[in-house]
Each structure stands twice: as structure tokens, then as C-alpha cells.
């Protein structure tokens, strides 16, 4: 059995294999809901919860699920957890339910969750899978927070609802509209690419 490496798994989830910035998974829901920080936190928490639960169950069942129908089995497991999370949000956080709308049930087809099930949970033990779910979920949430912070500051002049600038500030509405979402995400991915390149160049320099 492979030795668990907590630090590496978390670094992978947050930076080197960040589901949004590097693997480009789960873009649809991400672009749609990152108009404010509160949305981002809600969506990140919901997706992380589903990811941890589905990773755990899939990794426990990995020896019983036949290979040919594995994708269908994963989708059923994931949609079960998504329904549970959706009902919980409807019951306890109705305002979050209104602002996320159709994107809560759409966590089912968030490619990030299916990709982790296929790439990690189906090959590793339950403990490693739960940690992987947590690391990837945290990476996803951080990515959502970064994008929504940029969009909220530019587009509304607030951060988590608190005004940042004086009354004369004219917000760039475009940043919270769909075109701004695409452009800001493109620029942030370029920035992360640059960051990873710099770190790698530095490590090479140290070794050589």
C-alpha cells in the first residue's frame, strides 16, 4: 500500500493539480456562481461535502462495482448525495438556495467529482480517498473564492457585502456579467501558469 502523504496531497489539490486552474474541471457552475463571495463559499462547501462523501463510498465499494457499469454506478451515488445536500440547503439556507438555483442539482454533472471518483477513489483506500476529496474540495473552494473576490471587488466595489471604496466609486458591471467571468478566469489561469512555471524554474535552479 502506498504511504499517505498529506502534505503532497494538499499541495496537489490546492496548487499543482487545482481542479479549476490546472485541471479545468467544473467550469460551468464555477463561472455561473462566482459573482459574490457568499455564493462561492456556499457552492464550495456543498461541492466539497458531496466530493468527500462520494469518494468515501466509491472507495469502499470499489471492489464490488463491476467495471462495465462503473460510471453509471458513480453517477447514482453522486446524485444521491447531491439530493441530500440540496434538501439540507433548502431547509436551512433558503437564501443560498435562491441565489445558487439550478446549479445545486447540477453538482451531479460537475466533472470534478466524477473525475476524482474515476481517477482516485476507484483505485485507493477509503482514508486516502477522503483526504483526496477534502484536498480537492478545498482547492476548488479556494479557486472559487479567488475568482469571486476579483469579480465582486471589480463589479460591485464590495468584499463579502462590505463596501471597500468611497461613494464616488463606479463599479465595472462587466466583471459580474458573463463576459467578465470568462475573461477574468482566463487571466487568473494565466497567472497560475506563470506561478507554477516560476516555482518549477526555481526548484530546478536549486537542484542544478
Amino acid at each position: 500500500m502506498k504511504k499517505l502523504n498529506l502534505k503532497e496531497q494538499f499541495l496537489d489539490g490546492i496548487l499543482y493539480k487545482n481542479p479549476v486552474f490546472v485541471q479545468l474541471l467544473g467550469l460551468c457552475s464555477m463561472l455561473a456562481i462566482t459573482t459574490s463571495i457568499s455564493n462561492a463559499i456556499g457552492m464550495g462547501a456543498a461541492a466539497t461535502a458531496v466530493l468527500i462523501c462520494s469518494n468515501l463510498l466509491i472507495s469502499l465499494l470499489r471492489k464490488f462495482i463491476p467495471k462495465q457499469v462503473r460510471i453509471a454506478a458513480y453517477v447514482v451515488i453522486i446524485s444521491g448525495f447531491v439530493t441530500a445536500v440540496e434538501l439540507l440547503i433548502k431547509a436551512y439556507l433558503p437564501s443560498l438556495d435562491r441565489s445558487l438555483g439550478v446549479f445545486i442539482p447540477l453538482i451531479v454533472v460537475n466533472c470534478m467529482i466524477l473525475a476524482r471518483a474515476e481517477a482516485f477513489a476507484s483505485k485507493n483506500g477509503p482514508v486516502a480517498s477522503v483526504i483526496d476529496g477534502l484536498a480537492q474540495g478545498v482547492g476548488y473552494t479556494i479557486a472559487l473564492l479567488v475568482i469571486s473576490a476579483v469579480r465582486e471587488i471589480l463589479g460591485a466595489g464590495t468584499i463579502a457585502g462590505i463596501p471597500l471604496f468611497g461613494e464616488n466609486f463606479k463599479p465595472m458591471i462587466i466583471a459580474i456579467l458573463p463576459p467578465g467571468g470568462f475573461i477574468i478566469l482566463g487571466c487568473l489561469i494565466a497567472l497560475v501558469n506563470k506561478l507554477i512555471h516560476t516555482i518549477e524554474a526555481k526548484q530546478k535552479g536549486e537542484k542544478g
Binding site: F182, I183, L185, G186
Partner: peptide
């Protein structure tokens, strides 16, 4: 990234 900016 450039594809995303184009999409924008």
C-alpha cells in the same frame, strides 16, 4: 487562457 478570453 487565451481561449477563455476569446470566449469572453
Amino acid at each position: 487562457p487565451i481561449a477563455l478570453v476569446t470566449a469572453g
